[in-house]
């Protein structure tokens, strides 16, 4: 090993708190235990047994549900003999006036494309680990991107927005909620569950282990 390699290996034994830069020995906690930064109380690591498999399973479910939700009816309204059905695409493209097209695209990106992209990136980055294979090239980049996208994935906010909209028009007309609405609501539960399972540093460690040919359990 050259001096440079030795230095790099020594640095691998250290981690820094991403929020406050405090430096620690890189000790992996036991399952169900947490490593917390003593200075800023940020959770540095909280491994959960079998989390990678569950994260991938949830991501696959999210992709399936999102595709189904696009094609199924979302909401239906009826008042004085007039009827109108609305899909998720309709909701996004309601900003059809020229100056609001930007907003239509933004809504579509926030409620459909970003949740979809996050799920796809997680599947790409983590599924080889389930088969005890080394990760694909670009798995590290994919996982970093999926974490960067996290705050921009707004499906749960959209579902709450639908709830508020329904309250607003409940006096005005009879509204029926379609299958897509329920799919979307379940999807939100999946997303919340996934975020509680996903410990960033455990995923990085799992990727490192898979790359070095060490079994993940």
């Amino acid at each position: 090993m050259s001096i440079k390699d030795e230095q790099t290996a020594a640095l691998a034994d250290l981690i820094a708190c991403p929020t406050c830069d405090a430096l620690y020995q890189n000790v992996e906690p036991q399952f169900q235990q947490r490593a917390v930064c003593t200075r800023c109380h940020t959770v540095l690591s909280a491994p959960i047994k079998g989390s990678v498999a569950r994260i991938v399973a949830l991501a696959i479910a999210v992709v399936v549900f999102l595709i189904a939700a696009v094609f199924l009816p979302f909401l239906r309204i009826e008042a004085n003999g007039f009827k109108n059905a609305s899909s998720i695409f309709d909701a996004a493209f309601s900003f059809s006036a020229a100056h609001l097209v930007v907003l239509s695209i933004a809504v579509l990106i926030l409620i459909l494309f970003i949740p979809m992209a996050r799920a796809a990136l997680l599947i790409f980055a983590l599924s080889p680990l389930l088969l005890q294979r080394p990760p694909f090239r670009g798995a590290y980049l994919a996982f970093r991107w999926s974490e960067d996208l996290r705050p921009w994935s707004m499906a749960e906010i959209f579902v709450l927005g639908v709830g508020v909209a329904l309250v607003k028009i409940v006096d005005l007309a009879r509204v029926e909620v379609g299958a897509a609405f329920w799919l979307f609501s379940i999807l939100v539960v999946f997303n919340v569950f996934q975020d509680t399972l996903l410990c960033r540093s455990s995923v990085w460690r799992a990727l490192d282990r898979a790359r070095n040919g060490v079994r993940n359990d």
């Binding site: 909401l75 309204i77 008042a79 004085n80 007039f82 009827k83 109108n84 609305s86 309709d90 909701a91 996004a92 493209f93 309601s94 900003f95 006036a97 100056h99 609001l100 907003l103 809504v107 926030l110 409620i111 707004m154 906010i157 959209f158 709450l160 927005g161 639908v162 508020v164 909209a165 607003k168 028009i169 005005l172 007309a173 509204v175």
Partner: peptide
Amino acid sequence: MIDVFVVAVLSSLVQLGSVVSISPGP
């Protein structure tokens, strides 16, 4: 962002011909 989504849902759904229609504002 919830308010933007409320506007999106309302204006896609409430399109009832001459009775009532809702469209997004600037």
